[in-house]
Design a binder for these strands. Structure first.
Length: 876
RNA sequence: GCCCGCUUGAUGGAAUGGUAGACAUACGGGACUUAAAAUCCCGAGGCCGCGAGGCCGUGCUGGUUCAAGUCCAGCAGCGGGCACCA
C-alpha cells in the first residue's frame, strides 16, 4: 500500500491446476464474472449520504500503482471487504472507496529505464491493477476513484498548502538534508540505506539547503496526548508514535564563552534532560554543524577538515554505531553557570546532533555513557555527582552511573533524589536567569521538498525582490509540463527551458517557479477526506458530506506505515482544522494493521533463488523441475522479487477463483500475524468451495418451499442451534477481526450440515433455515459463491442486499451442559447434567461416578469445588 | 543498548483462570475405481499397556490457586520498532 520499493514479478501457472469444470462442479470463472456484473449493474456498492442513517467508513490503504497487485494487496483488501460487506448487511450506510497513490519515484525510474513518460506508465498501471482488483469481487464504490497525480486532486492540496503557509504552518528553512551526489537530488530518510542512495549506491552526503517544511512540531503535544484516546488503534502503533514524538523534560542552560585570554565570546545555550548533573560537567560539545563551529572553521583549516569528515559519515545508523567518538578542541572556554570561577573546555564533536535541542550539550562523563567514552578518550575529568541510593560503592572512572540515586558533590543539591534535584536546580537556573525548564521533542518538522518531477508542484514563485511569493489562487493548479526528458540525472523541472520562468505575482518582475515538488506522503495525508465527495471542484471536499462520512471507522493497512503516513495524516487533519477547513482532530477512529504474506524460499546448489514454480515436491524431497537437482528449502519470508518467493494473485484467481484466494487469506492465520502462503492451503480452500457448492446444490431441490422450522426437535433443533450459534460467533469474530476463528466456525457448521439428514417437513424447514444462515455468513468472505448458492436456494434478489441473520437467543443455550469432573485438578470423567442444576446435585452426581468412587477408595473427599455448569473438582 | 511482542502436535493455529490441541493443512488406514484423480469414512500429542486404563505434556525454573497455556517473579530463544535524541 502506498509506496513500496519494488513491483512484484509475474509468476507463471500453478503446478497444480484444478481439473476442468465438469457438470457437477462449481464453475467459478463464469459465476464470479456474472455476479460482478450484477453488482455493478445494480449499483449495489455505490454510497450516498443518507442523513440520519448510521454510516460506516471502511478504508484500506490505497495502493501505489506499481504495475500489478500482489498478495499483500489481496490480503489487505479481502479483510476490508469482509468488514464492509458485514457492516452493509448489518444495516450501515457503508462507504468503501478505492484510489491510487499515483505520484512517486518508480514512475521516474521507469521513465529513465524504459523511456516511457511517467504519466503514461502510471495510468497504464492503474488500468491493469483496476482490472485485477475488480476480479477480486470487492464491494467498492468505484465511482469515487481518485488518483493523486490528477490535477483535479492535487490542486486542492496546493490550495491547502497556501492556507497553511499563510497560517504559519508551512515555511522555508535551511536544513541539513541527505544528498545523493550521483543523482543530484535530496533523498528521504527512508531512501537512504546503510548510508547509501538506494538507487545509485553512492554514499550520501549531508548538504545544507533551503527547503519547505510543515510545522508538525506545532502539534507535537496534541499528537502525543490524543494517542491515549485512540482506543481502537493497536497499542503497538500508539507506542511507536509516542516514541517517535519523543517528549522529554529538561532544561536549557546558558554558558558564557570566553577565549583563552578571557575575552567575552558570547553565550552558548545547551539542552539537557539531566540538569541535576550540572555540577558534574567537565566539557561542552557542539555539533559540527553548529554556527559557532562554522564561524571558527572559517579561519581554521583543520577544523574545516573535521567538520567535513563529520558531514560525510554521520547519517547511517550502522555507521553511527561503530563510529568512534571524535572531538575537535575549540579555542574557547565555557564558564560554569553556577560555579563562576570554573571553566570547562569546548569541543566540536561528531556525536552531537544539530537537529535536536540546541545542537550543543554539556558533557557529564560520570552519568552519561557517551560523555564517559568521550572523556576517557580526551583525558577529561570524570566527576561523580550521583551516588547509588543504597550506598553501594561504584567506580565512576570505569563506567558511568546512569541510574537513579542521591546527589553528591553538588552544593545545594546534595542529598536529594534525581527527580527532586532536577526541580530544585531548574528553579535556581530560572531565579538566576541562566536557564529555563523546557520540554523537548524528538519529532522534527516535516521536510516536504523533493527534487523530483513526478510529484505535486509546490505553488510558490521566487522573486529576487519579494522573496518566496504564493502562486495566486486563480492560477491553480500549477501543473507539470509534459515535455520533459529523463536522460540526465537531476530534476527535469529545473532544466526545463520555459516552465519555471514566470513574472512575480507581486511586483511583475521576472521570477522563477519553485521547481521542487511535494513529498508524496502529502498526497496520502488527505485522500480519505477527498473520497467523501470526490467530484467537488472548488473545495477539497463538501463540508456536509465530509462531516457525515468522516472519520474513517475502520482503516486497514500495513504496520510499516505506523509512523510516517499515519502521523502525517493526523497532522494534516489538524492543519486543516487550524485553517478552518474541517473541525475534527483525528482522521482514523479504528486502525488495524495486517501481517505480511510470506512464502517458503528455494535455493539451488549454486545459491541462486528459485521460484515456487521452478521446483517439485515429493514428500520431503524437493528438486528443481528442469534437471532434478536437489533444492534447499529456506524459511518462510515476506514475498519479494529478490528472493523469488512471489506468487501472482492474477494466476491464483485464474486457476482457483477470487473466492478461494479470499477464503485462504482469511483462514488459519490471525489477520495481524504473518500468513504463510502454501500451495496445499490454497488447494484446501478450493476444495472447500467445491464442497459447499455440492452441499447446497444437492439439497436445494428438496427444500423449495420448505415451511416453518419452529416446531423442530431433536436433530433438527440441534442443527438450528448450531446455525444460530455460528451466526452469533461469526458476528463477534468479524467485529473483533478474528477472521480465522470465523472461518473455523463455518467449517464446523458445514460439517454439522453434512451430517444431517432431513426426513420430514420440519427437518427440511430447519435445514433450509440453516443453509440460509450459512450462506449469509460466508457472504462477506466468498461473495460470488454465496450469491450463487443464494440463488440456488431460490432467491431472486441479491444476497448483497440481504440482512445479516439475527441469532435467536433462545437457540444459543442448551438444556444440558457437560461438565468436567476432576480429582485434584486432573480430569477423571465428564458429566451431562441439566443446565443450572443445583450445586448439591452436581456434587452428588460426581461422587457417584465409578471413576470417582475408585479414586476415593471409600475415603471421604477433603473438599469439593463446584463451579456451576463448568466443573466439579474433588480434592482428596 | 532501550522499548514492544511472541514461544501450544509434523504444520498454521483454538482455548471469559475451569475437559489443552477446536478448525484446517500435511500424514496414515479403508471404501469407490481396471487404475489414478476427485469424493466419502476412520485414525492420530508423547510414553507404558493385549486391554481396561495409567503417567507425562503449552520454551525453561520457581510461585499463587481447589484448578495455570492463561496470573506473578526470574531466565532463555525468536521477531519487530527505535537508536549517539544529551
Amino acid at each position: 500500500m502506498l509506496h513500496e520499493r519494488a513491483a512484484p514479478t509475474i509468476v507463471r501457472a500453478m503446478s497444480q491446476t484444478p481439473s476442468p469444470d465438469g457438470p457437477a462442479r462449481y464453475n467459478f470463472r463464469e459465476t464470479e464474472a456474472r455476479w460482478q456484473k450484477s453488482w455493478e449493474a445494480a449499483g449495489t456498492f455505490r454510497a450516498a449520504m443518507i442523513p440520519g442513517k448510521p454510516k460506516y467508513y471502511v478504508l484500506e490503504m490505497f495502493p501505489y500503482p506499481s504495475g500489478r497487485i500482489h498478495m499483500g494487496h489481496v490480503r489487505n483488501y479481502t479483510q476490508g471487504d469482509v468488514v464492509a460487506r458485514y457492516r452493509r448487511a448489518r444495516g450501515y450506510n457503508v462507504l468503501h472507496p478505492m484510489g491510487w497513490d499515483a505520484f512517486g519515484l518508480p514512475a521516474e525510474n521507469a521513465a529513465m529505464e524504459k523511456k516511457v513518460h511517467p504519466a503514461k506508465w502510471t495510468y497504464e498501471n492503474i488500468a491493469t491493477m483496476k482490472t485485477q482488483l475488480k476480479s477480486m469481487g470487492l464491494s467498492l464504490d468505484w465511482s469515487r476513484e481518485v488518483a493523486t497525480c490528477d490535477p483535479s486532486y492535487y490542486r486542492h492540496q496546493q490550495k491547502m498548502f497556501l492556507d497553511f503557509w499563510k497560517a504559519g504552518l508551512a515555511y522555508r528553512k535551511e536544513a541539513w538534508v541527505n544528498w545523493d551526489p550521483v543523482d543530484n537530488t535530496v533523498l528521504a530518510n527512508e531512501q537512504v540505506i546503510d548510508g547509501k542512495g538506494w538507487r545509485t549506491g553512492a554514499p550520501v552526503e549531508r548538504r545544507k539547503l533551503t527547503q519547505w517544511n510543515l510545522r508538525i512540531t506545532h502539534f507535537a503535544d496534541e499528537l502525543l496526548e490524543r494517542l491515549n484516546t485512540l482506543d481502537r488503534w493497536p497499542e503497538k502503533v500508539r507506542l511507536m508514535q509516542a516514541n517517535w514524538i519523543g517528549k522529554s523534560r529538561g532544561a536549557r542552560v546558558n554558558w558564557a564563552l570566553t577565549d583563552a585570554s578571557g575575552a567575552d565570546r558570547g553565550r552558548l545555550e545547551i539542552f539537557t534532560t539531566r540538569p541535576d548533573t550540572l555540577f558534574g560537567a567537565s566539557f561542552m560539545a557542539l555539533s559540527a554543524e553548529h554556527p559557532v563551529v562554522a564561524d571558527l572553521a572559517a579561519a581554521d583549516p583543520a577544523l574545516q577538515r573535521f567538520v567535513e569528515e563529520c558531514r560525510k559519515t554521520g547519517t547511517a545508523a550502522a555507521d553511527l554505531e561503530t563510529a568512534e567518538k571524535q572531538g575537535y578542541k575549540l579555542p574557547l572556554l565555557a564558564r560554569h553557570p553556577l560555579k563562576p570561577n570554573e571553566t570547562v573546555p569546548v569541543f566540536a564533536a561528531n556525536f552531537v546532533l544539530m537537529e535536536y535541542g540546541t545542537g550543543a550539550i554539556f558533557g557529564c562523563p560520570g552519568h552519561d555513557e557517551r560523555d564517559h567514552e568521550f572523556a576517557r578518550k580526551y583525558g577529561l575529568p570524570i566527576l561523580q555527582v550521583v551516588a547509588p541510593a543504597d550506598g553501594a560503592k561504584i567506580d565512576i572512572q570505569a563506567a558511568a552511573f546512569v541510574e537513579d540515586g542521591v546527589l553528591v558533590n553538588s552544593q545545594f543539591l546534595d542529598g536529594l533524589g534525581v527527580e527532586d534535584a532536577k526541580a530544585r536546580i531548574i528553579a535556581r537556573l530560572e531565579e538566576t536567569k541562566v536557564g529555563t525548564g523546557t520540554t523537548q521533542y524528538r519529532l522534527r518538522d516535516w521536510l516536504v521538498s523533493r527534487q523530483r518531477y513526478w510529484g505535486c508542484p509546490i505553488p510558490a514563485i521566487h522573486c529576487d525582490d519579494c522573496g518566496a511569493v504564493p502562486v495566486p489562487e486563480k492560477d491553480l493548479p500549477v501543473t507539470l509540463p509534459d515535455d520533459v526528458t529523463f536522460d540526465r540525472p537531476g530534476n527535469p523541472l529545473d532544466r526545463h527551458p520555459t516552465w519555471k520562468h514566470v513574472p512575480c505575482p507581486k511586483c511583475g518582475k521576472p521570477a522563477r517557479r519553485e521547481t521542487d515538488t511535494f513529498d508524496t506522503f502529502i498526497d496520502s495525508s488527505w485522500y480519505f477526506d477527498r473520497f467523501t465527495s470526490p467530484g467537488v471542484a472548488d473545495a477539497p471536499f463538501d463540508r456536509a458530506e465530509n462531516k457525515y462520512w468522516m472519520p474513517v471507522d475502520q482503516y486497514i493497512g500495513g504496520v510499516e506505515h505506523a509512523i510516517l503516513h499515519l502521523l502525517y495524516s493526523r497532522f494534516w487533519t489538524r492543519a486543516m482544522r487550524e485553517v478552518g477547513l474541517a473541525d475534527r482532530d483525528e482522521p482514523f477512529e479504528g486502525l488495524f494493521t495486517q501481517g505480511m504474506v510470506c512464502h517458503e524460499t528455494y535455493r539451488a546448489a549454486d545459491g541462486t533463488w528459485l521460484t515456487p514454480e521452478e521446483i517439485r515436491r515429493d514428500g520431503d524431497r524437493v528438486t528443481r523441475l528442469s534437471d532434478g537437482a536437489a533444492v534447499t528449502v529456506g524459511r518462510s519470508e515476506k514475498m519479494s522479487k529478490s528472493k523469488k518467493n512471489v506468487v501472482d494473485p492474477d494466476q491464483i484467481i485464474r486457476d482457483y477463483g477470487a473466492d478461494t484466494a479470499r477464503w485462504f487469506m482469511l483462514s488459519d492465520s490471525p489477520p495481524e500475524r504473518d500468513l504463510e502462503w502454501t500451495e496445499a492451503g490454497v488447494a484446501g480452500a478450493w476444495r472447500f468451495q467445491q464442497r459447499l457448492w455440492r452441499l447446497v446444490s444437492a439439497r436445494a431441490a428438496d427444500l423449495a418451499g420448505a415451511g416453518d422450522a419452529a416446531a423442530a426437535t431433536g436433530p433438527a433443533l440441534a442443527l438450528l442451534r448450531a446455525a444460530h450459534r455460528a451466526a452469533a460467533g461469526v458476528s463477534a469474530d468479524i467485529e473483533a477481526f478474528h477472521f480465522n476463528k470465523a472461518v473455523a466456525r463455518l467449517y464446523e457448521l458445514a460439517n454439522t450440515i453434512d451430517g444431517f439428514a432431513a426426513t420430514d417437513a420440519t427437518d427440511r424447514a430447519a435445514l433450509r433455515e440453516t443453509l440460509e444462515v450459512f450462506i449469509t455468513l460466508i457472504g462477506p468472505m466468498t461473495p460470488h459463491l454465496a450469491e450463487e448458492l443464494w440463488r440456488t436456494l431460490g432467491h431472486a434478489t441479491l444476497l448483497a442486499d440481504a440482512p445479516w441473520p439475527k441469532a435467536d437467543p433462545a437457540l444459543l443455550v442448551d438444556d444440558t451442559v457437560r461438565l468436567a469432573v476432576q480429582m485434584n485438578g486432573k480430569l477423571r470423567a465428564t458429566l451431562e447434567l441439566p443446565k443450572d442444576c443445583a450445586r448439591e446435585d452436581a456434587e452428588r452426581a460426581a461422587l457417584a461416578l465409578p471413576e470417582v468412587m475408585r479414586g476415593l477408595d471409600g475415603k471421604p473427599p477433603k473438599r469439593v469445588v463446584v463451579v456451576p455448569n463448568r466443573i466439579v473438582n474433588i480434592v482428596v
